[in-house]
């Protein structure tokens, strides 16, 4: 396990007792950053113990110190993975930031529809968490079935969290999840009851290709996407890492692609490839000269 210098447990003595990043906690946040690039926010650092409780239980460990020594003692890939999964912020909801989904439905998708003479729509959600974002997109497309008849639709959804991707693939959501943002009409139309939970029906599930993938060692994306979403992911990366993710997104986009970030995230100051979109407020497009260099307006073959 490669720990950054700040995670050295010997340093812990010098940190004040009010610091949530003491001792063992520093080791966990160091592991999280080394594996995912995510810097633990202060509020999450305070809740670290709660987040790690299920991991302690599952591995028969008594407390945070025992977990830290186990991690440092010998390589335990499964334990590391469980710690990382537990510390990642997987918060998501259906139709999160409704105006953005309105814009996708009313403006972005119709534009792509008008432009793509090869009748192929390619979407990539990078950092998709448990899938609410892409299921929302799939619902929009299915509700507009007549328009997309005869089209090939590819939706790739990637996340570094093995737990989130496993959950997303099942398509199962709790009552609490569906209450957040999913209109009741869509719930009744596209979900089936599954015990106390709800399960996206197979038509929706089949539309989405969920993959575990790290944005800093990406293997899943292939070719160029018309619509790219990387929402609420960049927030906790360092500026260098944001740049690196935006370069990756640029490599998988073409001159007509639209990139959507989370509210409060921006490409400004982080990317030479993307600029605020001329038409879609809150969206980003490729800078004209950058796009020309990388192959012009047409999407290249995969």
């Amino acid at each position: 396990m490669a720990l950054p210098p700040s995670a050295d447990p010997l340093l812990s003595g010098s940190v004040s007792s009010a610091d949530p990043m003491r001792g063992a906690a520093r080791i966990f946040s160091g592991l999280l950053e080394a594996r995912t690039g995510q810097i633990l926010s202060e509020s999450r650092a305070w809740r670290m113990e709660t987040a790690l409780k299920p991991v302690l239980r599952a591995h028969g460990l008594s407390d945070m110190d025992a977990l830290a020594s186990r991690l440092m003692g010998h390589k335990d890939a499964m334990l590391e993975n469980d710690v990382v999964n537990a510390l990642l912020n997987n918060e998501s909801s259906f139709f999160r930031d409704l105006q953005i989904f309105d814009m996708i439905h009313r403006h972005i998708l119709p534009r792509i529809h008008a432009q793509r003479s090869d009748r192929t729509l390619r979407i990539w959600s990078a950092g998709c968490s448990t899938g609410q974002e892409v299921y929302s997109l799939a619902i929009q497309l299915c509700n507009d079935m007549a328009r997309w008849r005869g089209w090939r639709i590819e939706i790739l959804a990637t996340d570094i969290s093995t737990a989130a991707i496993a959950q997303a693939k099942t398509g199962i959501f709790t009552q609490m999840d569906v209450q957040r943002g999913l209109p009741v009409g869509d719930l009744l139309k596209w979900f089936d009851p599954s015990g106390d939970d709800w399960r996206a029906n197979s038509a929706l599930r089949q539309m989405i290709d969920f993959r575990t993938d790290n944005l800093f060692d990406a293997h899943a994306p292939q070719g160029e996407y018309d619509l790219l979403l990387c929402r609420n992911v960049l927030l906790y990366f360092t500026p260098e890492r944001r740049q690196s993710v935006l370069r990756l997104l640029a490599r998988h986009s073409h001159a007509g692609s639209v990139l959507l970030l989370g509210a409060g995230e921006t490409v400004i100051g982080h990317s030479e490839d993307f600029v605020p979109h001329a038409e879609f407020r809150g969206g980003y497009g490729r800078r004209a000269d950058a796009a020309a260099q990388s192959g012009g307006a047409m999407r290249r073959a995969v």
């Binding site: 957040r180 943002g181 209109p183 009741v184």
Partner: peptide, 30 residues
């Protein structure tokens, strides 16, 4: 939370539904 229950309400003209107990986020979303 039964589906028939929710369906009946929607068919009778409800625009949305919430489960009790509800919180701020849920009500805001609806």
């Amino acid at each position: 939370n039964g589906i028939s229950h929710i369906k009946a309400a929607v068919e009778a003209g409800a625009d949305e539904y919430v489960m009790k107990p509800f919180d701020r986020e849920t009500l805001e979303s609806k």
